Amino acid sequence: MPRDYAGDTLLPVLMDPYGGPHGQRVVAAHHPHLTSQWFADQGFAVIVADGRGTPGRSPAWEKSVRDDLAEIVVQDQVDALQALAADFPLDLDRVAVRGWSFGGYLAALAALRRPDVFHAAVVGAPVTDLRLYDTHYQERYIGHPDEQPEVYRRNSVIDDAGLVGAAEPHRPMMIIHGLADDNVVVAHSLRLSSALLAAGRPHEVLPLSGVTHMTPQEEVAENLLRLQLGFLKRSLGLADGNEAR
Rank of each mutant, 00 (worst) to 15 (best):
R114D: 01
R114L: 02
R114T: 01
P115A: 10
V117D: 03
V117F: 03
H119A: 07
A121M: 01
V122S: 05
V122M: 04
V122L: 04
V123G: 03
G124V: 04
G124A: 11
G124E: 11
P126L: 01
P126K: 00
P126E: 00
T128S: 15
T128F: 06
T128C: 15
T128A: 14
D129M: 07
D129S: 11
D129G: 04
L130G: 08
L130N: 11
L130K: 07
L130H: 11
L132G: 08
L132H: 05
L132R: 09
L132F: 05
L132K: 02
Y133F: 15
Y133E: 08
D134W: 04
T135P: 01
T135Y: 06
H136R: 13
H136N: 11
H136P: 14
H136K: 13
Q138Y: 14
Q138E: 15
Q138M: 15
E139W: 09
E139M: 11
R140N: 12
I142G: 00
G143R: 06
H144S: 03
D146H: 12
E147Q: 12
Q148F: 09
P149S: 04
P149N: 05
P149K: 04
E150S: 14
E150C: 08
V151N: 02
V151I: 15
V151R: 01
V151K: 04
Y152N: 13
Y152A: 13
R153N: 08
R153H: 12
R154N: 14
S156A: 11
S156Q: 09
S156F: 09
V157K: 11
I158C: 00
I158S: 00
D159H: 04
D159L: 00
D160M: 07
A161P: 07
G162H: 02
L163Q: 00
L163C: 04
L163N: 03
L163F: 00
V164P: 02
V164N: 11
G165Q: 02
G165H: 03
G165T: 06
A166W: 02
A166L: 05
A167S: 15
E168V: 04
E168S: 09
P169W: 09
P169M: 10
P169Q: 09
P169G: 11
R171I: 10
P172E: 08
P172N: 11
P172K: 12
M173L: 15
M174Y: 09
M174V: 01
M174R: 12
I175F: 06
I175C: 10
